[in-house]
């Protein structure tokens, strides 16, 4: 059992949890994820490790409620437990492999969108602790969904926040800010890390390809085991078939076909829609009648 020792609501349907997971906290690195399962009957849900304290044996995750399972997770309270937490999964960020002088030669821009802001945090923190400064663009649909800005502001980085509806920070999507930094401020980035909804990563990659900035993205494919055993997470990277869980989750964004990725993510739409309705309406709604579209 893995106990939740802190819960805080960060924004609209966005919740942060500190979870006791000693072994994972001692072995994880920025860029990796874990899988949680609430109880006997729960689904295995992949979540990025947003922060970790190896001494206290704690990992931090941020969960956005988008379906039945994430809704259940976000209703857990401090003191509740996940039955299963396994990790760290996936490969650490490529940046971890580089030595200090290699890192210093990089001029990096991080772009986090929505809940994707959370996985960006440990990477920026890692660099910040090494005294390496970078630029960070944080984007969200609106003010209520922009998370962790105060955490980033404590690090050694320039933070540019933006919202689609201009309710906070700069107006418009993250690509507007990137464009401003590159074209108006004339900043010459030689590395970009973009994590967020597939549609955001797609447009960032189109732009950075044009600017000739190598771009790493983190793929949140649908997963089951997370250990390379099922192939649910497969995607094409260039001409090669890769499994996001063991070959990724980070890949060269310029080699990803995001349109295919987005279609795969919609794979279980019908089944999941039913599960959510069942959770909301209890056992009275079984779906499938066609009248309500459930």
């Amino acid at each position: 059992m893995f106990k939740i020792i802190k819960k805080s609501v960060l924004g609209d349907k966005l919740v942060l949890f500190d979870v006791e997971a000693e072994k994972i906290a001692q072995s994880c690195l920025p860029g990796q994820f874990l899988i949680v399962k609430i109880d006997e009957k729960g689904e295995r849900i992949p979540l990025t490790i947003c922060d970790y304290d190896s001494k206290k044996g704690i990992v931090t995750i941020v969960v956005q409620e988008i379906g039945a399972s994430t809704k259940k997770i976000n209703s857990l309270k401090e003191g509740d437990c996940f039955q299963d937490v396994v990790g760290p999964l996936g490969n650490p960020s490529d940046l971890i492999e580089l030595n200090d002088s290699e890192l210093k030669s990089k001029n990096i821009v991080f772009i986090g969108g929505g809940v994707g802001v959370a996985p960006v945090y440990p990477q920026v923190k890692y660099l910040s602790e090494k005294g390496i400064k970078c630029d960070v663009i944080l984007g969200a649909r609106n003010k209520d969904m922009l998370i962790l800005e105060d955490w980033f502001k404590k690090l050694n980085c320039n933070v540019y926040s933006c919202t689609d509806d201009a309710s906070y920070g700069l107006k418009g999507p993250v690509t507007n800010v990137l464009k401003m930094l590159v074209e108006e401020k004339n900043i010459k980035y030689n590395h970009c890390v973009a994590i967020g909804p597939a549609i955001m990563m797609k447009f960032v990659c189109i732009m950075t390809k044009d600017y000739n900035i190598p771009t790493i993205v983190s793929m949140n494919s649908i997963m089951v085991d997370g250990t390379g055993m099922c192939g649910a997470c497969r995607l094409m990277v260039g001409n090669e078939l890769k499994f996001a869980c063991i070959d990724g989750p980070e890949f060269d964004g310029h080699k990803i076909n995001f349109d295919e990725v987005m279609k795969r993510q919609a794979q279980y739409k019908d089944e999941e829609g039913r599960a959510l309705l069942k959770l909301i309406e209890g056992d009275t709604h079984h779906g499938g009648c066609g009248v309500c579209g459930g």
């Binding site: 089951v224 099922c230 649910a232 497969r234 295919e260 795969r264 794979q267």
Partner: peptide, 15 residues
């Protein structure tokens, strides 16, 4: 082969 509805036997049986 990456179309929706194509599964490995492992994925289908694991689910």
């Amino acid at each position: 082969e990456n179309s929706n509805g194509v599964f490995s036997a492992n994925e289908f049986l694991t689910r």
